[in-house]
Design a protein around this nucleic acid. Structure first.
Length: 568
RNA sequence: GCCCCCGUAGCUCAGCGGAUAGAGCGUUGCCCUCCGGAGGCAAAGGCACAGGUUCGAUUCCUGUCGGGGGUACCA
């Protein structure tokens, strides 16, 4: 579909160049002209503030610059009017019949590609999200990360990128050992042996369930085994569970990347060596800038390996390899991002929790210390989700076995409601997820408000089919102002996708969806396609319009990973 | 201490340096001879404060005040 902000901006740019050539404007480097959709009636369909921005370099008042632009502006058929307004805006009004004809374009593009852009054409993007270690099920807390990452991926695809969804995990740490030992203890207990449960072990019911399964599958053959096979078993079960849960909310990762592979390939130590070669690494008991007091405290420690993050403005250097020779998780994380860059992605988006806020900076500095570009890596920081139930907040603790699994939540409110509510706030602000509020399936629930718009379209078309009315070959010029309003709103989806992608703000699609539905419902009320003395040809055009509207809602719901029901 | 985020309507939140700051909920008052009312129409109600940059600031910068989160030789 034609992207009006771009073609109009090109027209303005060409007009400016023509004006300069004609000597009506002084010579200056043409800036990027932006054209945006107008928000208010009477201001045309699109507008630009170019004349105001150029007023100074043009050495003329804004309105005069605008007049000069208009004088040299070519007028394609789709452009009905371009006028100067206000302090120096140029308002563009499109030819209504050109807009009405877009109904066919919308239907032709269909629910999979409507309003797709080309800004990512030929480029590969990667979105890394969820990345929870397989030590427990997916919780409500993870859900926001999952939904944000997947929606970002969908939007990137709509923007033309070839997108890979990746899940990074660690199955080698102390926590996984503890998981294995927890299962081992439950297994032995299930065999009737009196064994102590590990302190700080994982107490979730699912561990006991796995122990029971293990007894059924293997009997007591693992009685004398160490924790290793238990860890492997628990991990496999856990991953199966995690994937199953994510699948329920329409999320599928393309790639699961094991941190351990970075150790096996030697990448971790190679990375450290490369950083060292660039002068960012040293070994010491305490960091170089530490006070005498701190040095004294560290006197008994084994020397650790430090990364000079202070060179990038950090308050102190960071440990890469602990005194016992084991790397902190930051080092493999740097190696991981180096690996991503080597895989040749044009864009890497990383969805992280707020508790990693400081961490990602160190990783970015690590990339710079390697002499690699860090500007293609973008991080979306997800602030905490506060979970409420019965008017009270409850905390999630994996190890204590207190958590609300995403599975339970899906059972209660459904995948669609979860996907929508998790996009209900911009990622970098705190979100309160009130289970009772979301469970409430009442008029005030925007999920149904949006889906009902699709239902209504489907219902009309179903009814038309039953009456044997065909909408093909409709005369779209018979459509009215209401329908035009909706078509303009559909066009805005292009801007929403561009904005969401450029600013890494997937939540914008959720707010747009509400607006689109709010534009639709009043029109549905007024614009009848059948009965009530609606002329046959007008009804046919309106039917065609509702078919396009249905495509639009399918597209928007699809971008949010939600379903588009035919009936409520 | 340092870092990050947030202060917009009674409540929950949108708002890409532009024109008269938008929704939903709640409150009040209306609309069902209907392609499904899980809807529609209408009323009341708001940018924490002070400077700065700008033709123009809710938006950018600085500071103050208030709220939340993060700050390991854990992962």
């Amino acid at each position: 579909m034609i992207y009006y902000p771009q073609v109009l901006a090109d027209l303005v740019t060409n007009a400016l160049a023509a004006a300069q050539a004609a000597g009506e404007l002084p010579t200056f480097v043409l800036p990027d002209i932006t054209v945006q959709p107008s928000q208010k009636a009477g201001q045309g369909d699109y507008n630009t503030n170019a004349a105001m921005l150029l007023s100074k370099v043009a050495q003329q008042p804004p309105r005069q610059v605008a007049e000069i632009i208009l004088k040299h502006l070519t007028r394609p058929e789709y452009l009905q009017e371009a006028v100067v307004a206000g302090a120096g805006f140029i308002n563009f009004t499109l030819n209504p019949n050109a807009l009405k004809a877009l109904v066919e374009t919308i239907i032709a593009e269909g629910s999979d590609t409507l309003c797709s852009l080309t800004i990512g054409a030929g480029k590969r993007a990667q979105v890394e999200f969820v990345s929870a270690n397989p030590s427990g099920p997916i919780t409500i807390g993870h859900a926001r990360n999952a939904v944000t990452g997947d929606t970002m991926a969908r939007l990137l695809e709509a923007a033309g990128y070839d997108v890979q969804r990746e899940y990074y995990f660690n199955n080698a740490g102390n926590q996984m050992v503890l998981l294995g030992k927890s299962l081992q203890a439950r297994y032995l207990q299930a065999l009737g042996l009196d064994v102590a449960f590990p302190e700080d072990g994982y107490r979730g019911d699912y561990i006991s369930e796995y122990a029971q399964k293990l007894v059924e599958e293997r009997g007591d053959t693992l009685k004398d085994a160490d924790w290793q096979p238990f860890k492997e078993y628990a991990e496999a079960q856990m991953f199966a569970w995690i994937k199953r849960t994510l699948e329920r909310v329409n999320i599928r990762h393309d790639q699961f990347f094991n941190e351990n592979s970075l150790f096996e390939s030697g990448a971790v130590w190679d990375t450290l060596k490369a950083m060292e070669a660039n002068g960012y690494i040293y070994r010491a008991k305490e960091w170089e800038g530490a006070s005498a007091e701190e040095h004294a405290k560290a006197a008994d420690l084994q020397p650790a390996t430090w990364f000079r993050t202070t060179r990038f403005g950090d308050e102190k250097d960071r440990v890469m390899v602990k005194g016992d020779g084991v790397p902190t998780y930051t080092l493999p994380d740097i190696a991981y991002h180096r690996n991503k860059i080597e895989r040749g992605f044009d864009l890497m988006v990383n969805v992280l929790g707020a508790d990693h806020g400081q961490q990602y900076k160190v990783v970015a500095w690590g990339i710079q210390a390697l002499g690699l570009p860090a500007d293609n890596i973008h991080v979306i920081i997800i602030q905490m989700v506060k979970t409420m139930r019965d008017g009270k907040e409850f905390k999630i603790s994996k190890r204590a076995g207190i958590f609300d699994t995403l599975d339970d939540l899906i059972d209660m409110v459904g995948a669609d409601a979860i996907r929508f509510h998790m996009l209900g706030r911009s990622a970098n602000t705190h979100l309160t997820f009130d289970v009772d509020e979301v469970v409430k399936q009442s008029n005030d629930n925007p999920v149904y408000y949006i889906q009902n718009a699709h239902v209504r379209c489907a219902s009309i078309l179903r009814s038309a089919q039953e009456r044997g009315i065909c909408d093909e070959g409709a005369d779209l010029t018979l459509l009215g102002a209401d329908e035009l309003t909706f078509i303009r709103k559909v066009l805005e989806l292009q801007d929403i996708i561009a904005l969401a992608v450029n600013q890494y703000e997937p939540h914008r699609i959720a707010f747009y969806a509400k607006e689109l539905a709010a534009t639709f419902h009043p029109i549905y009320d007024r614009v009848r396609a059948m009965g009530d003395g609606v002329p046959e040809d007008v009804g046919k055009a309106r039917l065609r319009f509702y078919r396009a509207a249905q495509v639009a809602f399918q597209r928007v719901l699809g971008l949010m990973g939600m379903s588009a029901p035919e009936r409520m």
